[in-house]
Design a protein around this nucleic acid. Structure first.
Length: 203
DNA sequence: GAAATGATCGTCT
DNA sequence: GACGATCATTTCA
């Protein structure tokens, strides 16, 4: 069942808070999203992969909405996004964290070193690993493909917003408070409110 | 407990 | 040739 959500003319900023509470299912595991980040398109968002226009990696972002954009980073991690805007606009929402609500055994087997269940998907790369997502899932249609997105019956209320995490340069500043999360959820990482404190004493 | 570090490679300059 | 929308582990105070 395709969601009417993506038929509306919207971008990642509008859709990000509405993805909170949504569930994502893949490979026998279902995760309920508790933390996301919005990324916009060409020229407007210095932190976005789409900022400099289409390229090899970000092609999916420029495609139709409702698809999964998966990319590889830091030489070992996969991160997943939901493409939001109409074709050509390239705005997407990074899925940062969630809570495993189904397939907990499979999830644990995919993350053998994970101490607590609340940390199974408490980070973008952990989330993809727990769901078994890789570059093979890039471009999958979330309504009909092997990865499924189900929106909550009603948008969650009382979500929080703040600066994005892990984005260096101008895009990471408070100028773009495009991180959205559900306060109090244990799967949401305890982020430092500002840049990490530098250690005072050095050798 | 907090901060530094090593792992590891595709993509773009 | 540098660096990244990160994580797990080690190291330090």
């Amino acid at each position: 069942m395709p969601s009417p959500l993506f038929d509306e003319h919207a971008d990642a900023l509008e859709l990000a808070p509405r993805l909170l509470g949504a569930t994502l299912s893949a490979g026998g595991v279902t995760v309920r999203l508790t933390e996301v980040e919005a990324y916009l398109g060409v020229g407007v968002d210095p932190g976005s992969h789409a900022f400099r226009g289409p390229g090899r990696r970000n092609a999916t972002m420029f495609g139709p909405p409702g698809r999964l954009y998966v990319y590889f980073t830091y030489g070992m991690h996969w991160c997943a996004n939901v493409v939001c805007s109409p074709e050509g606009q390239a705005s997407a929402v990074l899925l940062r964290a969630g809570e495993v609500v189904e397939g907990i055994e499979i999830a644990r087997s995919r993350r053998p070193n994970c101490a607590r269940d609340t940390q199974l998907a408490s980070g973008p790369a952990r989330l993809t690993r727990t769901l078994g997502l890789t570059g093979d899932d890039d471009g999958v249609d979330l309504a009909t493909g092997r990865v499924r997105l189900t929106l909550p019956p009603r948008p969650v209320e009382g979500f929080a917003t703040g600066p994005r995490t892990g984005v260096s340069g101008p895009g990471g500043s408070a100028e773009f408070p495009w991180r959205f999360w559900m306060p109090g959820e244990p799967s949401v990482s305890a982020y430092r409110a500002h840049a990490p404190q530098r250690r005072i004493t050095r050798r």
